[in-house]
Design a protein around this nucleic acid. Structure first.
Lengths: 204, 204
DNA sequence: TTCCTGACTTTTTTAACAAAACTATCAAAA
DNA sequence: TTTTGATAGTTTTGTTAAAAAAGTCAGGAA
């Protein structure tokens, strides 16, 4: 029984890995179940034995990389000596995450694929992990006395994260797409670090 | 000659006004040249006598309301006693502008209409007017000594405007559209005012 | 019983094309 | 110079058929 589940889990992992590679290179819409099955030298029907449908498979892969990402954040929680340090870490980690998985998210087409709403739960979990990391660092600095007390630390961090998001979008205005091209990501990253400086000073 | 041009200008104005009402209610794509002509009890062909094509007509209307907007900003330039006051004015004015012309801009569809690039020049002019108002106020405060000198005031204001933009987009995430629904605009407005407080303190 | 497949059905995407709606033009009239 | 009806040209919309992909299932192998 246990061995059977182990084997199942290993196979599931293999499928997730192969799927990730396909999705990463070609995006959701341009990846077919036949291709994934082909990569694994198995029949397409077997994929449906392990996963209910294509969208659930995609989401399973997404959840996996999201968990890797949030684990990376949680490991670092409460290890920072300042809010700024925490923000820099968040911005850098997020930057790398986006750069590394750029094609996986298929940003230009993903909205049109009407994937299950579960996808937004994953996004929320990622946001929550970021929020947690940063609001903990904020609370610590408030306790330490370097930053003035605020009524709602989580709300404040959300506000700042939204503002940082704006730096991203500011770099793509005048375009017909809503997500920055890969070549803009570096400039966005620099501007975010600049903005955080002002934020932090404003909180002191 | 002068009278002839006067008359032409008056007629042009009438066309612009009728077009504005149509575009405001139905947006660009759902407004036809026949309807505009019908509102004015003139033939469609006459519209083409005064304006080269539909997109140029739309742009002419857009330019008109953009100029009204930027004039409102320019009239107020250098009348503020603080950067914060200037920001509050900009945020409020911009808010009203968006609310009043919400349907005109047809935000959910406008990107797909591939209008001439001239449209972005108008957007740039609006940005420039906002940038001018705010960076003047910033420079004044720097001279007054309440805010620390910065190497590039314009760049800084651009950064802050981009950040404010993020507050807008933060309120629409998880949706498939990139522009906030009308009912969200009030909350966005409030958050922007909140953020500016932090900004200003961070610059002091 | 669990894992797996080939063959099959159903759904979605794509392409081609006709009809309708709309933009844009123009000769001629006011 | 200003205006229009008629019409040409283009884009959008709707239809249908073929192709491709998703998804199912009866039954075989381990």
């Amino acid at each position: 029984m246990a061995a059977g589940n182990d084997h199942q889990d290993i196979k599931r992992e293999k499928i997730l890995e192969a799927s990730y590679q396909r999705f990463l290179h070609y995006g959701y819409s341009k990846t077919t179940m036949n291709e994934i099955a082909g990569d694994l030298s198995m029949s397409k029907a077997l994929l449906y034995y392990y996963f209910p449908d294509k969208s659930q498979l995609y989401i399973a892969v997404m959840r996996k990389i999201a968990i890797d990402y949030t684990n990376g954040l949680e490991d670092k929680t409460d290890t920072f000596t300042s809010l700024k340090e925490a923000f820099v870490f968040q911005i850098n980690t997020n930057h790398d995450f986006i750069v590394n998985n750029y094609n996986f998210f298929d940003f230009f087409r993903l909205n049109e694929q009407n994937l299950p709403d579960m996808i937004w739960e994953i996004v929320d979990q990622v946001h929550l992990a970021e929020l947690n990391l940063l609001s903990n660092a904020l609370k610590a600095e408030i306790e330490g006395g370097t930053i003035k007390p605020v009524t709602n630390p989580e709300e404040l961090i959300t506000l700042l994260l939204d503002a940082l998001q704006g730096i991203r979008d500011g770099s793509v205005s005048q375009k017909k797409v809503s997500f920055p091209r890969k070549e803009h990501l570096e400039g966005i990253h620099t501007k975010k670090l600049l903005l955080i400086d002002i934020f932090i000073k404003g909180l002191m």
